[in-house]
């Protein structure tokens, strides 16, 4: 899966939450954790430092779960 496309999806999620009250970066991470398959999160996290990311996505990175499974 292309990391650039995932970055686009993450940025779209951030654009929604940036107008919401509350902990915005947490909400972004939550949405990604709940809806993205582990392989998508994997690919995304591995490439994150090279991607053009919305500030909220950057702030959410530590909370985006790496796959738990063995």
């Amino acid at each position: 899966m292309k990391p650039e496309k995932l970055a686009g999806m993450a940025n779209q999620i951030a654009q929604f939450f940036e107008s919401q009250p509350g902990d915005q970066s947490h909400a972004v991470a939550d949405h990604i954790n709940a809806n993205w398959a582990p392989t998508m999160r994997d690919t995304f996290l591995a490439a994150a430092d090279k991607l053009d990311l919305h500030p909220l996505v950057k702030a959410a990175l530590p909370e985006i779960r790496a796959p738990q499974r063995g």
Partner: peptide, 17 residues
């Protein structure tokens, strides 16, 4: 599995990859 799976567009992206 407690983790979400792939959605149709994600499946297609993963297939291309």
């Amino acid at each position: 599995d407690p983790e979400p799976g792939l959605r149709i567009p994600n499946m297609l992206d993963a297939a291309v990859a």
